[in-house]
Write a protein that binds this DNA or RNA. Structure first.
Length: 348
DNA sequence: AATCTCGCCAACCGCCCCATG
DNA sequence: ACATGGGGCGGTTGGCGAGAT
């Protein structure tokens, strides 16, 4: 006997969200905070299932979401973290707090996978070529081929291990520069058995947001998310107030609004909104949230992200031990590592 | 100009985990 | 210990826009 759907299929709206729905949802969450999704449709009158509301919030309306092109560093981090964690997008996303797991997943599927495939094809082509030359030159028997392939397999295995290690190292070092990975590096150094609470506290102390002008321009407050939304909604309404119920593509909505309001601060507009977000509305009674600055709070608290960190803790503590134990040995292997990484470096 | 193809991405689906009674 | 339900996660899909023909 399967589980019943999370909500009645009858009368539940599907498809793209309209700005009106977004506003209803956001203002509800503003008032009550995210969570208890099941009650959202009933309390707001939205004809959406609770899951849909949650997804809409976490993937689009949630404060602090960065949209648009991925930077090289983000790309590298994703590749490395994917090598480490596999397709655990939520875990990967927890190291890129401004990106949603859905975004990362999409980016991986549409861009990075192809990129890596291409890379792999190129390298295997080259390998085949080399093998061809070798076999011609040495009149190779099947046994020698087997021996060679075994050696190659071992090398590859070793390379994979090195790659994973290097990925973690790279991720850590990347983070120190500009990406929000401090919780990992800090916890590794100071807190081998880090718990989520401790990690989050570290986040608080290091993350204080955006270091670069770029990240300043991409930081989005919750109000700004709505600010992005509203102008177009208004514009749209002006254009076709009679067709206000039409479902419009939100991607286009946001893009066009972004062009209209390139500055993240759109403060004038925000101020003119009646959606003045009070971050305290997002506060729950957790210690962590109370100790975090408002900006950080708006970014991390009460949402799914921290839980994702929880998920990845075991592998990280394992990896950290691995790293630390092997730190010295690694030095001697760096040359080998570099060889293994030359291929991937060329990609960037 | 019209049609076709492809890529992107928001959203959905179904499974799983975990909290609660 | 078990059943149930809510929420989270990853895979997949469908619609739309852009570029190619």
């Amino acid at each position: 006997m399967g589980r019943p759907p999370c909500c009645d299929k009858v009368g539940v709206k599907k498809g793209p969200w309209t700005p009106e729905e977004d506003i209803i949802l956001v203002s509800y969450i503003q008032e009550h905070g995210p969570g208890n999704w099941r009650s959202v449709p009933t309390n707001t009158g939205l004809l959406r299932c609770s899951k849909s509301c949650r997804l809409r919030w976490t993937n689009y309306l949630r404060p602090g979401i960065k949209r648009g092109n991925f930077t090289d560093q983000e790309e590298k981090m994703i590749i490395h973290l994917q090598a480490l964690l596999g397709n655990r997008w939520a875990a990967i996303a927890s190291y890129l707090p401004q990106r949603t797991d859905n975004d990362i997943k999409n980016y991986w599927n549409t861009h990075l996978k192809k990129k890596l495939n291409k890379m792999q094809t190129n390298s295997s082509d080259q390998e085949n070529l080399e093998n061809h030359h070798r076999s011609r030159g040495s009149n190779s028997s099947s046994s020698s081929e087997t021996a060679m392939s075994k050696g190659k397999w071992e090398r590859r295995l070793q390379t994979d291990i090195h790659t994973a290690k290097q990925a973690l190292c790279d991720a850590l070092s990347l983070d120190n520069k500009s990406v929000n990975l401090p919780e990992l590096s800090s916890s590794i150094v100071t807190n081998p058995n880090s718990q989520i609470h401790q990690q989050t506290v570290v986040v608080k102390s290091v993350v204080p947001p955006p270091q670069t002008s770029q990240s300043m321009t991409t930081y989005a407050s919750s109000a700004e998310n709505i600010a992005r939304l509203l102008p177009n909604w208004i514009k749209k309404s002006e254009k076709s107030s009679h067709t206000s119920s039409e479902s419009i593509g939100t991607t286009q909505t946001q893009n066009s609004v972004k062009e209209q309001f390139p500055s993240p601060s759109s403060e004038g507009f925000e101020n003119s909104l009646q959606f003045g977000f009070n971050n305290s509305n997002y506060s729950n009674n957790s210690d962590v949230s109370q100790s975090i600055s408002p900006e950080t709070t708006s970014l991390f608290q009460d949402e799914s992200k921290p839980k994702a960190e929880d998920v990845q803790l075991p592998p990280l503590s394992f990896l950290e031990k691995w790293l630390l134990d092997d730190a010295t040995a690694q030095e001697h292997e760096d040359n080998l590592m570099n060889l293994a990484f030359e291929g991937s470096d060329g990609m960037f």
